[in-house]
Simulated assay, not measured.
Amino acid sequence: MENEEKTLQYLRQCGERIQEPDRRAGKAGERHWNSIAKPLHGLGLLEDALIQIAAIQGTEDITLDKKAVVVMCADNGIIEEGVSQSGHEVTTVVTGNIAKGLASVNRMASCAGADVFPVDVGMKDDLKLKGLLVEKTRNGTRNFLKEPAMKDEDMLAAIRAGVEMTEMLSDGGYHILALGEMGIGNTTTSSAVASVLLGLPAEEVTGPGAGLDKEGVRRKIAVINQAAAAWKLGIHGPLSGDGEKDTQLMMQETLRTLRTVGGLDLCALTGACIGGAIYRVPIVLDGLITAVAALTACRLLPGVRDFLLPSHLGKEPAMAAIYEELKFCPVIHARLALGEGTGAVALFPLLDMACQVYRENATFGDLEMDAYEDYR
């Protein structure tokens, strides 16, 4: 209980530092879009994204010049139960490639003009590579079918690592961050957390991850259902009002779920989402794992939601349910399932193109034309 209270206290302190986005700056951005000589709302969701970014940055003079991708890397003890085709050694190899600049996310980030920051927040192996940041308290989580995945202090350390990573990059002048992950077994941990937080059976939120066959998916579902029942996990409905007691109960149940069946990468990504709200940096989400992290962060601190941007609707079935709850409408529908932050990085060039129109196109006033009327 003492360690849980430390986590709750830390989150309350984080919540006190979160201020709402600047709605006036967002409205100014919207007015500027409407003044540009083109069909109103012609760039659709990209216009909405830039309006949101204007509100986050507190100015209609949007800047997206310096971009980064944060890839949280960790291993998951649940792979002992046969829920993945691969072992932890794949986490080691792929993380090493990311640190060396050789992975898919590096290639795509190079095209998008973004820097990549891999972070070891709980890998089983200890890698010492230039370019790999190490922020971990334990080497992988436990098998959550047999015991809780981690201790309260491990969870808190990983959440802090995510917040502090966002702080470091904000201080480094980065204008927007994409989130990614690497960790064999993390679609199982994320599906488990999603199942509990959404109150949905594992059958409705669990997919093949990196490529399980039908029997493998059935095994994965059975493991999640068995663990949820064994640990008596369950969010008991939505908050009934806005009382402090209800809010605390939601935070406690969310943290218990994260600690019991979650992953260290999931904790760190949750912290990175919270950090985006504290330091007013737009956070672009990737696939299932980052979506679950966003859901977790918003259950802990609802004010985080306004600082998050979805990139794509991934193939894992939980994503649609999560985005429905968060009222997110992702821009890209390309059946992506690669991970590493690649889907989030894919949004960067689209935002850059929209920003070019936003900054440089002539306005109706420049052309001495009557502006279109907005009948929405």
Rank of each mutant, 00 (worst) to 15 (best):
P39G: 07
G303A: 12
A68P: 02
C14M: 11
T137K: 14
L127S: 04
P21N: 02
R142P: 01
N186A: 07
K27L: 15
A354D: 07
A337D: 12
I235N: 04
G87M: 05
R305N: 07
P118T: 12
D242F: 11
G96C: 09
N3I: 00
M319L: 15
E324A: 15
D75E: 05
F307G: 13
A194F: 07
G82E: 02
G44S: 13
T188E: 14
L45H: 03
T363N: 03
T166I: 10
A192N: 13
S110M: 14
E368G: 00
L179Q: 09
I289E: 05
F117D: 04
V292W: 11
A158D: 11
E147S: 12
G339M: 08
A321S: 14
L351V: 01
A149E: 10
A371S: 13
G172Y: 12
V205W: 00
G96H: 14
H333D: 09
A202T: 15
R280F: 02
H175S: 10
T206K: 00
L200G: 06
L269Q: 14
N225L: 00
N139H: 15
G96Q: 11
E135W: 06
G113R: 07
D352V: 01
E60A: 15
R359S: 10
K315N: 06
V90M: 04
S240P: 08
V261W: 07
A109T: 08
K128T: 10
R218L: 14
E373M: 01
V281R: 15
P208T: 00
Q9K: 14
G29E: 02
R359E: 12
T166Q: 10
G173W: 03
D126R: 14
T63Y: 11
H88K: 12
F307P: 11
S84G: 08
L266K: 09
G185L: 09
E244K: 15
E340F: 08
S170F: 09
V281L: 14
H88Y: 11
T296Q: 03
L249G: 01
Q252W: 00
Y10P: 07
T7K: 13
R335E: 15
I62W: 05
T254P: 12
S104D: 07
V94H: 00
V261R: 09
G207A: 05
M150Q: 08
G343H: 02
G58F: 02
R142V: 06
V71P: 06
R305Q: 09
K130H: 11
A161C: 03
L177N: 04
L11Y: 05
A114M: 06
L269N: 12
V94T: 10
K100M: 08
R24C: 04
V304T: 09
R259L: 09
E135I: 00
L129F: 15
E253N: 13
M72K: 06
D352M: 03
V134Y: 10
I56A: 13
V261L: 13
Q57F: 03
L258Y: 07
R335L: 14
K327Y: 10
Q19N: 11
F328E: 11
L308S: 06
A230C: 02
F364I: 02
L40H: 08
M369S: 01
E253C: 10
Y279T: 00
T95Y: 06
G29L: 03
V121W: 03
L156R: 15
L212K: 04
D374W: 13
T363Q: 01
K6D: 11
V193M: 10
A362Y: 03
A210V: 05
G263N: 10
V105W: 09
E80W: 00
G185C: 11
I221Q: 01
